[in-house]
């Protein structure tokens, strides 16, 4: 072992870098969070002994359970809307002529160059009481007085969908790109109509992309705390707001850490489901 490291300094450097990164920047912080979650709140040092599961127990407090369920509901709704828009979008995108495809994907990615916080403020300008949307609707005569768009659940969901839609489209686009035309023709050839082909071939073959998209949208949709901060008012909190508040305002680190861990475990569960669906398609071990 020692000898091989001496012989291949580059290899050794890469290994040290990768393992070092994982150890100090991924594993250690996560262990700190796990550690914090089982400690006791302390006003002066943030956390202190003894170890206990009070923080987890606190998660079942109806107040927080309500916030969690409402956040989950908004995240699921956001994910569904992203899926409903993203699926046909990605399908159509994969069928467009190659050169135009690249342009469309480029346009999809361009918003990433602007900070999402800034884009959320832009959305606020559009949705505000005398914002662009209300002015447009009033001048068109659709409504007589400005509608309350901002600080509603709808505004939060619009914001989340707006920020997260590309994360749904990109993995879906990738599975639609891999979908071979002759496999669909084979389905028709064997007597399946459009709907049967969609149900039996297209849906199962694009399922890994759906799951990847859901993963990339659902969890951030529970965590993007600045969206309700800017667009939602006080009644439309996300789990992310709770966590942020515990760390920055309430100074209850164990509770914030416990909430983070529950969120992380949800992510792990989704990853596992995604892996299973991929294995079913035979993409691994071939």
């Amino acid at each position: 072992m020692m000898q091989s490291i001496k012989q291949q300094p580059f290899r050794a450097a890469v290994l040290v870098l990768v393992w070092g990164w994982l150890l100090f920047l991924v594993l250690a912080p996560n262990m700190l969070v796990v550690g914090a979650s089982v400690m006791t709140r302390d006003p002066s040092t943030f956390i202190s002994l003894p170890l206990n599961f009070d923080a987890y127990r606190q998660l079942f407090n109806p107040l927080y359970l309500d916030v969690f369920l409402h956040s989950l509901y908004m995240a699921v709704l956001t994910t569904l809307i992203c899926l409903l828009i993203g699926y046909p979008f990605a399908w159509a995108l994969s069928r467009v002529e190659k050169r135009r495809q690249m342009l469309l994907i480029f346009l999809l990615i361009v918003p990433f160059w602007t900070n999402s916080l800034v884009r959320t403020y832009a959305l606020k300008l559009i949705l505000a009481t005398n914002g662009l949307l209300n002015s447009a609707l009033m001048s068109l005569g659709v409504i007589d007085e400005p509608a309350q768009l901002l600080y509603t659940e709808g505004a939060v969901i619009v914001g989340l969908v707006y920020l997260l839609l590309p994360f749904m489209i990109l993995p879906l686009y990738s599975v639609f790109e891999d979908l071979r035309q002759d496999v669909l023709l084979a389905s028709h050839d064997l007597g399946a109509g459009r709907f049967a082909t969609f149900k039996n071939i297209i849906v199962p073959l694009t399922l890994p992309g759906v799951l990847a998209g859901v993963m990339l949208v659902l969890l951030p949709a529970m965590g993007l705390f600045f969206v309700p901060d800017i667009l939602g008012g006080s009644r439309n909190l996300l789990v992310g707001n709770v966590i942020k508040n515990q760390f920055l305002d309430a100074r209850n680190w164990p509770f914030g850490a416990a909430a983070s861990i529950v969120l992380t475990l949800t992510m792990a569960l989704l990853l596992f489901a995604h892996r299973l669906s991929k294995r079913r398609l035979g993409e691994e071990g071939a």
């Binding site: 071979r180 002759d182 496999v183 084979a186 071939i201 073959l205 398609l281 035979g282």
Partner: peptide
């Protein structure tokens, strides 16, 4: 030509 079997 490339069989077009249903992979799943």
């Amino acid at each position: 030509q490339n069989y077009a079997l249903f992979p799943h």
